[in-house]
Amino acid sequence: YFGQHKPWRSMDEIASNNSTVFLERNIVSATGVYGGVDYTNGVYYSWNKGAFTSSDNLWAGASVYSLHKQTGGAENRTQGLGYNARLAYAPFVSPTAWAHVGVNFSNDNSDVNSTVTSTASPYAGFGPSYTYGGRSGAKLTLASYGSGNAKALGNPHQDAIGGELAGAWGPVYGQAEYTMLGIHQEGLAETNINAYSITGAYAITGETRTYDKKNATYNALRPSHAYGAFEVAARFDHAQNNFTNGNVGCSAAVPTGTTLSNVTKCDVSMVTAGINYYPNPAVRFVLDYTHGHANLGNAGKDSPDSIGLRAQLVF
């Protein structure tokens, strides 16, 4: 592919908007630790074929892309480059059962006057109120290096390595993903972000979430009954700044009378429960409830709730 596409990151990131289990992708995708950087401009290659058995699938992909969106849309002349690779293997794939394991790696090198930021759902306004941005998710910055530092210290960069495990057996679907992201800049302390997500889903009407061999991810349910298909699902997301070298860039709108120096923890988590209804393969209704929790240590905690509803037509 040449032009705009997604780097080959998490399984949830690569899945189509038409197939995701919930309204929002998980915390190890661009919705979370990659700070909203989903589609990028570059060169992307993927390959897949059966490798060892009559029903397996081996997938490999690599990409090189511009960090144009890394600064949130600011129009700088140059904003750096990133590269990425992903390897996945499904030992067996059938219409009613499959298994998947994968790994992915990304390296983003920001250019002068740009910013490398790791942002994880779910908060951007810590306190009585919070910001929930629909499909973009609500945010709290777990770690970042500012653009002003690049002029004096050189360009920041970040490395991320992730693992994927997923599978379906009849109406049961399970998925787990983990990403460790490190942010680096010469002259400043390195910081690390750990994030993971666990998903479970069950098709009440008996359908199976099939496997997408071309992209090494999952597909949506296809109703096998005249009245459609129903699916219930739950997910737990968690991400944290490990504070391995002190508080590097964890920020939030802390309560009155406190400062960022009071931030002795920097972690967020979400529990999401949802129900999906598929009247036919082209229409879907999604209802999600999410309970979030932000823990900033001495600076306080926050636990917002949200309800989301989506009606979808695919054509």
Rank of each mutant, 00 (worst) to 15 (best):
A168Y: 05
T131H: 08
T141A: 10
Y145G: 05
S29D: 04
K139V: 14
G297D: 12
R235C: 09
T191C: 04
S54M: 00
Y178Q: 06
D108H: 11
P279L: 01
F22G: 05
T131F: 14
L260Y: 11
Q79S: 10
T31K: 01
A88T: 03
D305N: 14
Y45C: 03
A226T: 11
A120I: 00
S114F: 00
P122N: 04
H225D: 08
S129C: 11
F92D: 04
L140F: 09
A60Q: 06
L87I: 12
E24G: 08
F230Y: 11
N76L: 15
I14Y: 09
N245F: 10
N41E: 13
T244P: 05
A160V: 14
N245D: 03
N155M: 00
Y89M: 02
G308E: 14
L165T: 00
T199S: 07
T258C: 07
A252L: 10
A234I: 13
Q312I: 09
I275N: 00
G73T: 00
G246A: 09
A90S: 15
A203Q: 12
G274V: 05
P122G: 09
Y278E: 13
V248K: 00
G146H: 07
K69G: 10
C266L: 09
A294P: 08
W47H: 15
T40K: 13
N241W: 00
D212S: 08
A176N: 07
T210C: 07
P95Y: 04
Y44R: 00
Y1C: 10
